[in-house]
């Protein structure tokens, strides 16, 4: 696949809930390895957009197409359900804001990480365990907890486990919904550092939704600013944050409290 192949192509995606336009005519392209941040306040439509992109919600209009490892382009909603589910489990990842939504709380950490491997046919316990250990280390979880269920973990640890669970299958595109929201500030900081490092190392494309501009600046290559369902500004992250053009973007940037 050449560098020019767009990974995710989004064209005129709209989603309404009755009269409310949660997503209004959103279009963009995402290239392999790019991190796109979607920022906006509550009700901006950013989470709705993310869910449409991840095929968790069906848009009312528009096209979303994905290019797989072999260069084949498919309309994700024209795919059959089993294909889409397989895609979501292998090529894609989804990191939920609340890690409990993205984990099996009563299955051990190792089992959580190993699940995607078992789903694609891995049948050697030793290999699965080894992969799980590797990932526990990578997300800086204590190896001794590999046989503990995440129900016993702290929020930050659960989030790390969720990340490992998603990345074990080597996805090319990961969706993240406020991955550090709800965590204590110091825990958040370490998690962001981890995310930043992993994303760079693995060259994975990311669409990350956040209301926190500092998180957006740290992790994203590009930003889209959303308001009332529409994208009001988009561009290079440091450009949008340092030289915002749209009135709303300027308001957002100027509203950040300084420590």
């Amino acid at each position: 696949m050449s560098d020019d192949d767009v990974l995710l192509h989004v064209e005129h995606v709209s989603k309404y809930f009755g009269q409310i336009r949660a997503c209004d005519d959103v279009s963009f392209d995402l290239w392999p390895g790019e991190v796109l941040g979607i920022v906006g306040e509550s009700g901006s439509g950013k989470t709705t957009l993310l869910n449409c992109l991840a095929a968790r919600l069906v848009p009312d209009s528009g096209l979303i197409s994905y290019t797989n490892r072999h260069g084949e382009v498919s309309d994700i909603f024209a795919m059959s359900e089993p294909e889409r589910r397989m895609l979501a489990r292998t090529d894609w990842g989804f990191v939920h804001q609340n890690p409990r939504d993205g984990l099996r709380l009563d299955i051990t950490a190792g089992g959580n990480i190993g699940e995607r491997l078992m789903m694609v046919g891995e049948r050697h316990y030793g290999n699965i365990r080894h992969e799980a250990e590797t990932w526990m280390n990578r997300v800086e979880l204590e190896l001794g907890r590999i046989d503990s269920p995440p129900r016993t973990f702290s929020g930050g640890m659960q989030q790390r486990l969720q990340i490992a669970r998603n990345l074990v299958s080597g996805p090319r595109l990961v969706f993240m919904d406020e991955p550090t929201g709800g965590l204590d500030v110091s825990v958040q900081a370490r998690l962001l550092d981890l995310l930043r490092e992993l994303v760079r190392e693995l060259q994975v494309a990311v669409v990350i939704v956040t209301h926190d501009l500092a998180v957006a600046r740290l992790l994203s290559d590009r930003l889209m600013v959303m308001r009332h369902g529409a994208v009001v500004e988009s561009g290079l992250t440091d450009q949008v944050l340092d030289d915002p053009q749209h009135a709303y973007s300027q308001l957002l940037v100027s509203s950040i409290l300084q420590v």
């Binding site: 561009g235 440091d238 450009q239 030289d243």
Partner: peptide, 9 residues
């Protein structure tokens, strides 16, 4: 300078 770096538009 910032324009040259594409930091400003």
């Amino acid at each position: 300078m910032r324009i040259l770096y594409a930091n400003y538009r």
